[in-house]
Nucleic acid binder design. Structure first.
Length: 261
DNA sequence: ATGGTGGTCTTACCA
């Protein structure tokens, strides 16, 4: 079962790229972030006519998350229960034998700002939610745009970025706390010393110069990590004309259900 | 080439 996550920075602009990549890579389940559209604008028909199942929650102009799947989605949650957040940043579902939580973590703007405080508050709610979900669903994947580079190895210039948003100690502590609940950073597990990025700023020719960061992640519970056979950050779509600023990230999971298919 | 892009009911704001 191929599970992927991709911040598409407007699904309206990137719809054809998403459909093409999904088929090309034979993805089974894809978590999208930054769809940037209200639910009535969501291109349901484009996915349904291709034979996929979709669940989504969005808003005007900003944020928005969705799950695309070849098999049906059940027990969909479009927010963290008990956390009244107007920003559409979380969607969870059971699919293909796993529980999937798709996150678009707030960017945080800059350390010390209201947006940064919101990011940390938001992450504390995610913390509780993931802890609860993990008790209910041992086969848990937490994926998305975390807007956190976990270690200096995940940053092209850690000296220039020291202490800044995306790498600040408080954000990294939140990330580590998520792992401590019983999740594994699948990329780092496969590649302990590899420097690879999932996001490059549109400005300053960052992609061409490979000035990136690894901020998009697939965290797997231990039972899922045990059957995870492959991990890839696919930089090909970032080379596309009119690309998202993020690359899709993908794992292969050998679940019994996937093997019986 | 020490630079600046891209998305959004745009002329400001977000990333």
């Amino acid at each position: 079962m191929k599970l992927a996550t991709w911040n598409v920075n407007s699904l309206k602009v990137r719809l054809e790229q998403v459909l093409d990549w999904f088929e090309q890579q034979s993805v089974d389940v894809l978590a999208l972030q930054e769809t940037k559209m209200t639910d009535d604008q969501f291109p349901v028909e484009s996915f349904v006519s291709a034979g996929y199942h979709v669940s989504f929650t969005g808003q005007k102009t900003y944020n928005g998350v969705a799950i695309i799947s070849r098999t049906p989605l059940s027990d969909v949650e479009i927010a963290i229960p008990g956390y009244d957040d107007p920003q559409r940043r979380v969607i969870a579902a059971s699919v293909a034998g796993i529980r999937l939580i798709n996150l678009y973590v707030p960017n945080g703007a800059a350390v010390g700002t209201d947006k940064y405080d919101y990011k940390l508050t938001w992450l504390s709610h995610v913390q509780k939610y993931v802890a609860n979900q993990l008790k209910l669903y041992p086969q848990l994947a937490v994926v998305g745009d975390f807007n956190i580079a976990p270690e200096d190895l995940d940053v092209h210039d850690p000296v220039a970025w020291e202490g800044a948003v995306l790498v600040s100690p408080a954000e990294r502590t939140e990330f580590q706390s998520l792992l401590n609940l019983g999740l594994v950073d699948s990329f780092r597990s496969f590649f302990p010393a590899v420097q690879d990025y999932s996001w490059w700023d549109y400005r300053a020719a960052s992609f061409r110069r490979n000035l990136g960061m690894r901020i998009d992640h697939i965290l797997l519970s231990q039972p899922l990590m045990a059957v995870c056979t492959d991990m890839l950050i696919d930089k090909q779509p970032r080379q596309h004309e009119r690309p998202s600023d993020h690359a899709p990230v993908m794992v292969n999971i050998d679940t019994p259900r996937a093997m019986s298919k």
